[in-house]
């Protein structure tokens, strides 16, 4: 690193923070728990990896409090790959976020997959140089996270299930609410802001553009190439795949297939071809079988 990098005044601007997410569009971000898995993900064509200690399916199976990963493990993954590395902090745990920024991760995911540290407040993300991605199940939640400084949104789905139905519900909800907001007249936006529990200025901006001011990926339950293409056809900017890859029979081939499906999401011939010969998909759990206290998507306020 040279001197000039350190003294550069225009780093960590909203444009620079949101810009990295722009560059990940049309790509797949994969959960990895070891440097070896990170390498497999990079070789398969991941645009970034999410470093964590346990994939959501294991967090669900093993229970207990789930926290930020061991810094040694994150360092190992950062040195194993050349693509961006993301890592998760608990909701509201700004010290975990300070540590992750100090480790030099490229993005922090303030994630409901980990045990929340604060049941009222999220992290004040404007205070950080590193950009944040946050989960959302509806438009109001997405706008509140953007107000707190999130530079990227991830619809939540239900992590660690391999069941895409919640991901579908959340992207349909967010897109539907965006369309409804865009159809409102100027004088209806004050009440819209109240109902969305989001600041009026941001609500007005989104009403006039008809879209979020940041990139939105889909997460939570994507396990097959067809699931990834489904989310892209629904208008996602890209997909996160958590347990779906490394809990499957042939992670390297499945990862490559999901990458191709995310690019050629509108081409059923390509989708048919990449869906062949992938071995067992993750076994999964139906979201409807999960007792309510175990639904991760309900964390976040």
């Amino acid at each position: 690193m040279t001197e000039s990098n350190i003294s550069r005044p225009n780093s960590a601007t909203p444009l620079v923070k949101r810009g990295l997410a722009e560059m990940m569009k049309g790509g797949v971000i994969m959960d990895v728990v070891t440097p070896e898995q990170a390498k497999i993900a990079e070789d398969a064509g991941a645009v970034a990896v999410m470093a964590l200690e346990r994939v959501p399916a294991d967090i669900r199976a093993q229970g207990g409090v789930s926290r930020m990963s061991d810094p040694d493990m994150i360092d190992g993954i950062i040195s194993a790959v050349s693509i961006p590395v993301m890592a998760k902090a608990r909701i509201g745990h700004f010290v975990e976020a300070q540590i992750l920024q100090s480790l030099g991760v490229d993005y922090i995911d303030e994630s409901e997959v980990l045990s929340p540290a604060d049941y009222v407040n999220h992290i004040d993300k404007w205070k950080f140089k590193v950009p944040f991605v946050c989960g959302a199940t509806n438009l109001g939640e997405a706008l509140r996270r953007i107000t707190e400084g999130a530079a990227m949104i991830r619809s939540k789905g239900e992590a660690g299930t391999g069941d895409v139905s919640e991901a579908m519900k959340h992207i349909r909800t967010i897109n539907g609410e965006l369309r409804a907001l865009a159809a409102k007249t100027e004088d209806e936006l004050y009440v819209a802001a109240k109902e969305l529990q989001a600041p009026y200025e941001l609500v007005r901006e989104v009403a006039s553009t008809g879209k979020l001011p940041v990139v939105m990926f889909v997460a939570g339950g994507v396990a097959t190439p067809a699931d990834a293409a489904l989310m892209m056809q629904m208008g996602a900017d890209g997909v996160f795949v958590g347990s779906g890859i490394f809990k499957s029979g042939n992670p390297a081939e499945r990862a490559k297939a999901i990458v191709k499906a995310t690019t050629f999401y509108n081409d059923p011939d390509v989708l048919a071809q990449v869906s062949r010969g992938l071995g067992e998909a993750m076994v999964g759990i139906n979201v409807t079988d999960l007792p309510a206290p175990h639904r991760l998507a309900e964390r976040g306020w």
């Binding site: 780093s11 620079v16 810009g19 990295l20 590395v85």
Partner: peptide, 26 residues
């Protein structure tokens, strides 16, 4: 890494007037 991403204004051969607005991201 991303912490070293930045914005800058640049002189650019053949583009007179206002400097070019550039975003450098990784």
């Amino acid at each position: 890494n991303q912490l070293d991403s930045f914005e800058a204004e640049l002189d650019f051969v053949g583009i007179p007037g206002e400097p070019v607005k550039a975003a450098f991201i990784r």
